[in-house]
Computed example of a mutant assay.
Amino acid sequence: MSTTYADRVAAHDPGAVDAARALVQGMGAELHRSWTRPGAFVDAVARRARQLPPAHLPWFWDTVGHRLIGYGSRPGGRAYVAARGRGAARSARRSRLPQGRRAALRPGRCHGPG
């Protein structure tokens, strides 16, 4: 079980470490609830990610990607794209777009990667 995000916060933002650890624990519970639908897991944690400071996002999304190892490449790929920055800005916009447009923004669609 990856704790990369909580470890990074502990080292660089000690005031937020309790919240980061709680978020990582919540990730485990959410993944357990939606293990047959890893895309739903990514959507759920994306809602939580919108409340994080921008500096936390790459580490948060790396941890999400680690958690998704073994659940297929698409959900993990979404997390790794977000961790690398391009997806971080999109994750904030994604909640305001209609469902069909949201699908067009996913990696691997006709608009190219990421």
Rank of each mutant, 00 (worst) to 15 (best):
R47D: 15
R67E: 11
V24Q: 15
V64N: 08
Q25S: 12
G39I: 04
T36M: 03
P54Y: 00
A20R: 03
D62R: 13
G65E: 13
V64F: 10
V45L: 08
G65P: 14
V17A: 12
R67T: 09
A49Y: 04
V64I: 12
P38Q: 06
H66C: 11
F60K: 04
L52Q: 14
P54N: 07
A44L: 05
R50S: 11
P53M: 07
Y71C: 09
A16I: 11
V17T: 14
A22P: 04
R74T: 06
H56V: 05
V42Q: 05
G26E: 05
W61H: 08
Y71R: 03
S73W: 05
R67P: 04
A22T: 11
A20T: 12
Y71I: 07
V24T: 15
R33E: 06
T63C: 08
D43Q: 03
G28T: 03
A20Y: 13
H56N: 05
D62E: 14
G70C: 06
D18A: 14
R37V: 01
P54G: 05
G72H: 08
P38T: 01
H56Y: 09
A55E: 13
A46I: 00
G65V: 06
W61F: 11
H32M: 00
M27Y: 12
F60G: 12
P58S: 07
G70K: 04
W35S: 02
H32D: 02
D18L: 07
G72S: 09
I69E: 15
E30W: 07
L68V: 09
R47N: 08
E30I: 08
F41P: 04
T63V: 03
W35Y: 03
L68W: 07
E30Q: 03
D43V: 11
A19K: 00
G65R: 09
A49W: 05
W61V: 02
D18C: 00
G70W: 08
R50L: 06
S34W: 04
H66G: 12
Q51L: 11
D62Y: 15
M27L: 09
Y71G: 05
D18H: 12
W59F: 07
R33G: 07
W35M: 01
F41H: 03
A44H: 09
V45D: 10
S34D: 03
D62N: 13
E30V: 00
R74M: 09
P38D: 02
H32V: 01
G72W: 03
R33H: 08
W61Y: 15
L57F: 04
F41I: 04
G39L: 00
D62T: 12
F60E: 10
A49F: 05
V45C: 08
R33F: 06
V17D: 09
S34L: 01
L57M: 03
R67S: 12
G26C: 06
S73A: 11
P53Q: 13
